[in-house]
Amino acid sequence: MELGKAITGLIMLACFIVPIIILGFIKKRNKKQIVNSLSDFAKQNHCIIDEYEFCSNFVIGIDKIHNFIFFLQKYDQENKIKQINLSEIKSSKKLITKHGHNIISRLDLLFYPLSKNADAIDLEFYNSEQSFELNDELQTLEKWSKIVANQLQ
């Protein structure tokens, strides 16, 4: 009788734990694929990612030697990749857009080119219309704003 309860308990426990483990593996594999895609894009442009950070649906990286920022954002099955030559950038600015009662709706890192004819380049870290939950995007924006500012000096 006790053995039957123990076996039933173990089976029920496995039914809850196995899906969580599988989801963890899938998330880890997706992260690795996104990071590899960014690294491959950098290599195609004769750069090497020195430092990178993965956050929810994007990865940002920098080649400090060649002075490039690489940004890959994943929406469903589509990847958007941006490459920014920091040698052509005058300054950068973090932009936190709020609505309502201090509810964050967008987080962006803006790059202002040296050329006055060129438009600012926008890296979208978070958009409430695309993702309902704000995770580590704000901390990532703060960190990368500092990294870019240091690189521009």
Rank of each mutant, 00 (worst) to 15 (best):
M1S: 12
M1T: 13
M1F: 12
G4I: 09
I7P: 12
I7S: 12
M12D: 05
L13M: 12
L13S: 14
A14G: 11
A14D: 04
C15K: 12
I17P: 01
I17A: 14
I20L: 14
I21K: 10
I21A: 14
L23T: 15
L23G: 07
L23I: 14
K27D: 09
R29Y: 15
K32H: 13
I34M: 15
I34H: 06
L38R: 03
S39R: 11
Q44D: 14
Q44N: 15
D50H: 05
E51G: 06
F58V: 05
I60M: 06
I60C: 01
N67H: 13
L72W: 00
Q73I: 05
Q73L: 06
K74A: 10
K80R: 11
K80G: 00
K82P: 04
K82T: 06
I84R: 02
L86M: 07
S87P: 03
S87C: 07
E88K: 12
K93Q: 08
T97M: 01
H99W: 01
H99G: 02
G100S: 08
N102L: 02
S105E: 08
R106E: 09
L110S: 02
F111R: 04
Y112E: 01
P113L: 05
L114V: 13
K116R: 10
K116D: 04
N117M: 02
D119Y: 03
D122H: 07
N127V: 03
L138F: 10
E142C: 01
K146V: 08
K146Q: 10
I147H: 13
V148W: 10
Q151L: 10
